[in-house]
């Protein structure tokens, strides 16, 4: 269970408050969606939870299954079971995707006191997972995300999620820049991972992703706060009327 309480975050470098008291609980086994206008703080929330530099938490708390996340290094948060599918996956020239994936899997196993996976077993595992996401051998050989199309980058994120089997997955606009077919593929990848032991926080602009990944709860974020929470119907309301009505209503 991901619990966020009264989270206030400002930029480290400037006096700019971005999150102004976020309260949110994602229960294990549930899918929550966050929608909201551009610049409302959705990506900031995902970065702060995963431990990126440059932000300062001025108030509030965040925990995963009772473990305080904010005190942990990014790699410790990952080992604790948190996963962020990046809005903009990072290109790392020179580091082979396969090496990266195996290193990540083994690092997490090591952190949890488990045995490392053998090269042979890893190969089998990755072939199976890559196939369902239509990721070919060439994409595995290339440097991490280098020369990948937008869709390939997003599929590579889902592949990582499938390999790492996190407890809590945050997807930041995983649908942006995808055509309908690519989005279906990504959604199938996510749905295959839906499980009673795993929670999801799906950040998106559009209802269309939520047609494929059906959320249990939908939140609307505006100006650094969750301003409204409801069921899947809330996403449809946004789709037909935009944010204006909702924002006016809560103002």
């Amino acid at each position: 269970m991901l619990e966020i309480k009264n989270l206030h975050v400002k930029l480290e470098e400037e006096d700019k408050q971005i999150l102004k008291g976020v309260d949110l609980t994602v229960e294990t086994g549930k899918v929550h969606a966050i929608m909201g206008p551009n610049g409302s703080g959705k990506s900031t929330l995902s970065y702060v939870l995963s431990g990126r530099d440059g932000y300062e938490v001025t108030e509030g708390a965040a925990s995963l299954d009772g473990e305080d996340l904010l005190d942990l290094e990014p790699e410790e948060r990952a080992a604790a079971g948190l996963f962020l599918a990046f809005q903009y996956p990072v290109e790392i020239p020179g580091v082979g995707n396969m090496t990266f994936l195996r290193t990540a899997v083994n690092a997490q196993r090591k952190a949890r006191g488990e045995e490392e996976i053998s090269a042979g077993d890893f190969l089998k595992l990755i072939r199976e997972k890559a196939k369902s996401l239509k990721i070919d051998a060439d994409m595995l050989k290339r440097p991490v995300n280098v020369g990948f199309s937008g869709g390939e980058k997003k599929r590579n994120e889902i592949l990582q999620m499938a390999l790492l089997e996190p407890k809590m997955c945050i997807l930041d606009e995983t649908d942006s820049g995808l055509d309908v077919d690519a989005m279906k593929l990504v959604a199938e990848g996510v749905n295959a991972l839906r499980d009673a032991g795993r929670g999801f926080l799906v950040i998106t602009h559009y209802q269309r992703l939520l047609d494929h990944i059906k959320p249990d709860v939908v939140h609307i974020m505006a100006d650094g706060r969750i301003v409204k929470t409801g069921g899947p119907e809330l996403a449809l309301e946004v789709e037909t009327n935009g944010y204006a009505d909702i924002l006016a209503e809560v103002a």
Partner: peptide, 30 residues
Amino acid sequence: IDEEGLFYLRSRGVPRDLATDLMVIAFVAE
């Protein structure tokens, strides 16, 4: 070192030292 790349690796559970070394190897690969 590219901090964005480093964070990306760390967010996947790769400890800072190891992530740095991966990027070091990538740097000298040429």
